[in-house]
Design a protein around this nucleic acid. Structure first.
Length: 872
DNA sequence: ATAGTGACTTGGGGGTAGATTT
DNA sequence: AAATCTACCCCCAAGTCACTAT
């Protein structure tokens, strides 16, 4: 399909006018449908640069993001229609905010807010004292802008908040809420499939090595495992344990699981402690570690508590990155370095120049191939891309090469070769594919893990990035440049002093440098070949304790903002009219960041895509619509367009209008402001407060509120819908968009078709039922065949199942349509405190794995033991 | 102050493994 | 068994923000 349809994969286009030509270069397929808000860089969509030159972006509606943007406008907390300045606390400052300056404000404490875990408790500062009659401040913006009916509602539904995450005195016994059996017994792990009510998070047999274990093993959810202290001999930890190792064999799994189960109720810190203490004992026998995170029994909770008490010690000695230990991020660090992509294998396929085959050196061919295979992307339609590519490739070719201009190059032979290779790969049998996969895995195994403070942790990106053509987002000035191959001599390794230095995997070469810096968490870095003053780091995976710890800290900080937010809002509201221009700009900027969840907006260089955040907004990005609306239209991070019209408090409106006076459309709106000034100011309001905390705060509190207010009785599927709606709302607030998949329309119409079919059979059944009741035989079916005579009861049953099917399908269609332009994943990964989700799942008997996939479960292990009554 | 550097978080898309349908 | 679909994982780009040097 691909190759054949476009016989002229040459660069004709370049010869054509300087402007990029849309759609006729790449006329093969995809683009036939109407173009609907496609963000891929298609210039009609996300690239649709908000027009900086005052000319009104009348085209904006061409971004037919219809549904979701409308939703945004109509429903979002930040939307105009809901914004009720009168009602809003933002609009109606109460308390004076005189304290807002020099020192951190004394935040009010809300009625029942209490530290959620003992760990936090230890870090908790003296809580500010109540004065807060404005409980609305605890609410997400979404609810602040809603009618007051919510409040009444809230009063009834919000139960007292819990004091201790680990308390086990829930009104309803856990055991009754979770019908599943206790998992304390050795059998617990076997019920995985048998019951959804066993909220089984993960089960891994890391070491068991019988053949049938394979599947489980390869599905490695990151697992912390006590490590033998002697491990260092480069590979020992990467190797599978020997079969002969008594404790690792299958026969003893019952025991092993039991043991492991104990572990499962430990908190991360406890696990860590446990892990390291066992490693201190230099256990030569590796244990099976089976992690089961389960909410399913009361026993679990109890155990937990017990364990907590037992491990008082461990808590005090717990590693706390970035805190008491100074800046130390780790004590010991062992890893095997990084793996390099295989060297280039020349294919020898000759491209054409002016119709004639050309000889290329392997290096030249490699780069030509990188270009050739991008034929189907829209990058090749961009002059910038072509220009940059040509510059770099030309350097490789040399001045006197036959190839003198890109326009006369025909890369088709290489493109087609590549398509064939792809096809070959696709045609491989399952076994062959599997073999290839396993081979790769085997080679990578040793790089996948690091041992941090004696605990085995997954490494994130241990593969060095392969060479290629740089693909920036949006109109990136550097797109198409050659991202050259990284060699060992480009790489700096960071590793524990006592750890063996990773062997350089490429013979005859060596690392650029080896450091032993335990104030940082990276294992290796190299300079980005595209922008040599920037770095590419190798970090631990998200599932590691190190990352988990800082993730938790992030959310704790955001939760803390809850206690300060009221005063902060009061303070900036007061400053809207300040005579000090900087103050006024800070106030308005903070307001926007708070209300619209904008990013801070650092300055950018000219050699980056031209995008903005709050502090870098241009005059043209905000349009004042009388009497008090602001229309935002700009390209934000990743050149994703932000388009939103919001009603704001009059002082804000006036301030913005005044900031625009006597400026060009391209001038900075906030001319006396930058992110460091802004953050410096925020830090005075709350320790550690920065602009991005507001995003986390507003996202998480919105989820928390939505879930709390909107969850009703129903089955899991219905609750899942509720969750997704809440999640969606957050995604809208954060402007997390996605392109509509190419096949969306096709998928929808297929579903519609099926639905019609189902409705048809339903109708048929109904006729049959009527007839059956009258003792008549059913009508013949579509093919004219006689159908079986069924009892009315049987037919009714069929009707019921069909109805269910129809319902299910209608729901899935609705969701699909509803979410086609909204990306839920990003907020789930980065902005929503997982404890909100976990607690909600516990309260409503929704299996957590309905919401979190495997990597999320691994990433959020630290949140799994949260109390069901947890509120953000 | 300001610019530059360094380290870490956040972001969407592509490819694909494995599920589901035919 | 093949075809089709889709959720997930990986990739790596692009942000944020602290800190250092000037």
């Amino acid at each position: 399909m691909h190759a054949s349809t476009d016989p002229s994969w040459t660069l004709m286009v370049v010869q054509a006018p300087p402007k990029p030509i849309l759609n006729n270069f790449n006329d093969d397929d995809d683009d036939d449908g109407p173009i609907v808000f496609k963000r891929g860089g298609n210039s009609t969509s996300k690239q649709n640069q908000p027009n900086l030159e005052a000319k009104k972006p009348s085209s904006s509606s061409q971004n037919s993001n219809g549904q979701s943007l409308n939703a945004h406008k109509g429903k979002s907390p930040i939307s105009s229609s809901n914004a009720s300045p009168v009602k809003s606390p933002i609009g109606s400052p109460k308390a004076s905010a005189s304290s807002a300056k020099a020192s951190p404000m004394k935040p009010p404490v809300t009625y029942s807010r209490v530290p959620s875990s003992s760990i936090d408790q230890s870090k908790e500062e003296t809580k500010p004292i109540v004065d807060d009659d404005d409980s609305e401040d605890d609410k997400p913006l979404s609810s602040r802008f809603k009618g007051s009916t919510n409040n009444a509602n809230k009063g009834v539904t919000v139960p007292a908040r819990v004091k201790d995450e680990h308390s086990d005195d829930d009104e309803v016994p856990l055991s009754s809420r979770f019908a599943a059996k206790s998992n304390a017994g050795s059998s617990s792990c076997k019920t995985i499939s048998s019951s959804e009510k066993i909220l089984l998070v993960s089960k891994i047999q890391l070491n068991g090595s019988t053949a049938k274990d394979k599947q489980q093993k390869s599905s490695a959810v990151p697992t912390k495992r006590p490590m033998d202290n002697k491990v260092p001999s480069n590979q020992s930890f990467a190797k599978k344990p020997k079969l002969s190792d008594a404790s690792t064999t299958k026969q003893v799994t019952v025991k092993a699981e039991l043991k492991a189960d104990d572990d499962d109720h430990l908190t991360i810190s406890q696990r860590m402690k446990k892990a390291s203490s066992s490693s201190n004992k230099s256990l030569s026998v590796k244990q099976n570690v089976t992690k089961v995170v389960s909410f399913s029994s009361k026993k679990t909770t109890k155990n937990n508590k017990k364990q907590m008490q037992n491990s008082k010690y461990s808590k005090s000695t717990k590693v706390q990155p970035g805190s008491s230990d100074g800046q130390k991020k780790w004590k010991t660090l062992v890893h095997n370095g990084v793996i390099f992509p295989p060297p280039y294998k020349p294919h020898g396929v000759k491209m054409l120049y002016k119709g004639k085959p050309v000889d290329l050196t392997p290096e030249q061919e490699e780069v030509a191939t990188m270009f050739a295979v991008m034929k189907d992307t829209e990058y090749v339609q961009k002059p910038q891309f072509l220009q940059n590519f040509w510059n770099d490739w030309r350097t490789l070719l040399g001045k006197n090469h036959v190839i003198q201009k890109l326009e006369a190059c025909d890369f088709n032979p290489i493109y087609e070769w590549h398509q064939k290779e792809k096809e070959k790969k696709k045609q491989m049998s399952t076994e062959e594919k599997k073999a290839v996969r396993e081979e790769k895995l085997k080679q990578e195994e040793m790089y996948m893990w690091a041992i941090v403070n004696g605990v085995k942790e997954k490494v994130g990106n241990f593969r060095v990035e392969p060479p290629g053509l740089f693909r920036g987002r949006g109109e990136h000035p550097k797109m198409g440049k050659l991202k050259s191959r990284i060699r060992p001599s480009d790489i700096t390794i960071n590793i524990g002093k006592d750890a063996p230095i990773p062997k350089c995997p490429i013979p005859g070469e060596r690392w650029k440098e080896v450091k032993h810096d335990n104030t940082v968490t990276w294992l290796a870095f190299w300079n980005d070949p595209i922008n040599p003053k920037e770095f590419k780091y190798v970090f631990l995976a998200a599932s590691s304790s190190l990352k988990g710890q800082s993730d938790k800290e992030k959310y704790e900080k955001a939760r803390k903002l809850k206690d300060y937010i009221h005063n902060i809002r009061t303070a900036y509201t007061k400053d809207f009219a300040s005579k000090d221009i900087t103050k006024r700009q800070i106030a308005v900027a903070t307001y926007l960041i708070d209300k619209l969840a904008l990013r801070a907006g650092n300055e950018k260089d000219d050699d980056e895509a031209d995008t903005v955040g709050c502090c870098t907004l241009k005059v043209a990005n905000v349009e004042c619509i009388p009497p008090n609306k602001l229309k935002f239209d700009f390209l934000g991070k990743d050149s994703i367009r932000y388009e939103n019209t919001v009603e704001v408090e009059l002082p804000v409106y006036k301030a913005i209008r005044q900031f625009q006076v006597a400026k060009k459309p391209t001038d900075d709106l906030f001319d006396s402001l930058d992110t460091s000034k802004l953050n410096a100011h925020l830090k005075e309001l709350m320790p550690g407060l920065t602009a991005k905390v507001f995003r986390t705060y507003n996202a998480s509190i919105t989820l928390d509120e939505k879930l709390y207010e909107e969850t009703e009785d129903g089955d899991v599927a219905e609750k899942f819908v509720i969750y997704n709606q809440a999640n969606k709302q957050v995604a809208i607030i954060c402007n997390h968009q996605r392109t509509i998949s190419k096949s969306h329309d096709a998928q929808m119409s297929r579903l519609t078709e099926k639905l019609e079919e189902l409705k048809g059979t339903l109708k048929e059944f109904k006729t049959d039922l009527d007839r059956a009741k009258k003792g008549k035989p059913p009508l013949k079916d579509a093919d004219g065949k006689q159908k079986r005579n069924l009892t009315p009861e049987a037919i009714e049953k069929k009707i019921a199942t069909t109805n269910q099917k129809i319902e299910k399908m209608e729901l899935s269609m609705k969701t699909k349509e509803d979410l086609k332009t909204v990306a839920l994943g990003t907020s789930k990964i980065n902005y929503l405190d997982p404890r909100i989700t976990v607690a909600w799942c516990k309260r409503h008997e929704v299996p957590i794995e309905k919401i979190f996939n495997k990597s999320l479960l691994a990433k959020f292990t630290w949140a799994m033991d949260v109390d069901p009554q947890f509120r953000f």
